[in-house]
Design a binder for these strands. Structure first.
Lengths: 128, 128
DNA sequence: TTGCAACTACGAATCGTTTCGTATATATTT
DNA sequence: AAATATATACGAAACGATTCGTAGTTGCAA
């Protein structure tokens, strides 16, 4: 049981985490460039945010060379699980089922994807 | 196509909406009492928030009598759909499937619930 | 009719997040 | 070597959300 409690990222921090998860450890410059593909963000803004994330424990950094390298300190899946829990609680009053039904009802999932879900369910049911 | 774009509620506003959805139209006093079952909140804090919600269009109010009556202006399901969309985008990079799989993998769903999902999937697949 | 209770309105303090200006250090180019 | 580009650090402004104090109004009870 690794009960490391990573703090919840803010909206802006999550955006940065997405970049780190997708591309792996990166420099401020790289992260900032990625962010700027979507919206305009100042370089020092990204820098500051990354520094705060290190303070909070959301990211780690390697300060060996002058240009620091940052990486996410928890895996994308772990963080997703965290955020999902909170989201289900606040928006679906704790019912993951209702949320799944809502999500499926309005999704444009392919047959393959739907079958994937069904087989996952079969697996779960077998275990029970 | 009713394309009314209700603004996104903040965390505090969502808490209030939950009360309004669960119990229907209510007074500030009632909402405040409900909130206080979970955490301490001042009466005027709740009042202010409800007033802001009316401004934003998240709630409506009947000011006929001295004691105003508030109600949510969008249904719980509509709002859940909104928030789900945003959540999937920001946390699962737009993949509702990944989110559903994550949710199912870690859920303690009963066999009945899982079967419910399967039959929903069957329905969707038939339509396709 | 005086006083207390319950309500709304509103401004402002507080708090967390985001953004950026500026200072400073270190490379790189000319 | 001087000028230029690029990096980090840091403080503080700007912004939004939350919280609450206070004033003013209305209803009700003593």
């Amino acid at each position: 049981m690794s009960s490391e409690k990573t703090p919840q990222p803010t909206e802006g921090e999550l955006e940065i985490l997405q970049v780190l998860w997708e591309h792996g450890a990166a420099t401020v410059r790289f992260v900032n460039d990625k962010l700027n593909e979507k919206r305009e963000v100042g370089y020092t803004t990204t820098l500051k945010l990354l520094q705060i994330m290190v303070e909070k424990g959301l990211a780690r950094r390697d300060t060996q060379s002058r240009t620091h390298i940052y990486e996410a300190s928890s895996s994308e899946a772990d963080m997703q699980q965290n955020l999902l829990q909170k989201f289900v609680d606040s928006t679906f009053r704790g019912s993951a089922m209702k949320m799944v039904l809502q999500a499926l009802g309005n999704s444009d999932a392919s047959r393959e994807e739907l079958d994937e879900i069904k087989s996952l369910i079969d697996q779960i049911e077998k275990k029970a």
